[in-house]
């Protein structure tokens, strides 16, 4: 009954916990990436209508999923930080944004390079593509706003507001293909229907998505550790680090 659950909510304990966890997530990410690519290129069959071009799916879909998922996680922690004034949750939110922006860019880029050979165009302004582009601007807006404000606590609050307002965009991206006429096709994989993909294709895609997830965790933990050090550089425990007291 005496477990102190708030222990890991202190930046100092999180710093050491995250440091111990990172190697495991790196190993998981690398192994999943190798298996995912192997299945994607050597086990998954040719597609009946798109031939080999569909193999872009093994990065496109994981990148698009991560871009939305990371945004929700970022907004969640930013919101917690705003509501309960917990420092660590705001730091995690700031650490998520660059990786989220990277995956959004990748989803857009691979989408363009898939759209050109299959649809006949790099880009169209349909609801799916436009809302994903807006997601990219939301990440960029969040990061530049935080960078513009010197006081970290005020930067956290301002960022949290953009992040929370922008959450509206996530269901718009997800349901755009159902709500409106779009050039982008509907979802091949969803929670309510059986997947519309051959098993090997689906397995490769899911493993690549897991690899992207593990990779994101590594990046977010590393960045959170740096943000902690930057913000707590004048505290006693960081001074102890310098003297090499703790490992």
């Amino acid at each position: 009954m005496t477990i102190n659950w708030f222990k890991y909510a202190s930046p100092a304990s999180f710093y050491f916990l995250a440091g111990r966890m990172i190697p495991f997530f790196i190993i998981a990410a690398v192994i999943l990436l190798i298996i995912g690519l192997y299945i994607g290129f050597f086990v998954a069959p040719t597609d009946f209508q798109q031939g080999e071009a569909y193999r872009i799916i093994f990065i496109h879909v994981p990148a698009a999923w991560m871009s939305m998922f990371l945004y929700v996680v970022m907004a969640f922690w930013a919101g917690i930080g705003l509501a309960f004034n917990t420092r660590l949750s705001s730091m995690v939110a700031s650490a998520i944004a660059p990786t989220g922006a990277m995956f959004t860019f990748l989803a857009l880029w691979t989408g363009a390079w898939w759209g050109k050979p299959m649809w006949g165009t790099w880009w169209v302004w349909d609801a799916r593509l436009t809302s994903e582009l807006i997601l990219f601007f939301l990440y960029i807006g969040f990061m530049s706003l935080q960078a513009a404000i010197d006081d970290p606590r005020r930067a956290d609050k301002a960022g949290a507001i953009i992040a929370l307002v922008g959450v509206v965009n996530i269901p718009i991206i997800y349901f755009s293909v159902q709500w409106w006429n779009t050039l982008h096709q509907g979802a091949s994989v969803s929670l309510v229907q059986s997947p519309k993909m051959a098993t090997a294709m689906l397995t490769g895609m899911l493993i690549m998505a897991l690899a992207a997830w593990m990779y994101s965790i590594v990046m977010v933990l590393m960045r959170t550790r740096m943000i902690i050090l930057e913000r707590e550089r004048h505290t006693a425990w960081v001074s102890e680090l310098k003297e090499g007291v703790s490992k």
Binding site: T46, A63, W113, P117
Partner: peptide
Amino acid sequence: MGGYGFYVWGSYLVALLCV
């Protein structure tokens, strides 16, 4: 890649560079 090498490898190369 069945004639789509430019697009497939163009996607994978940029993904590698981003990571």
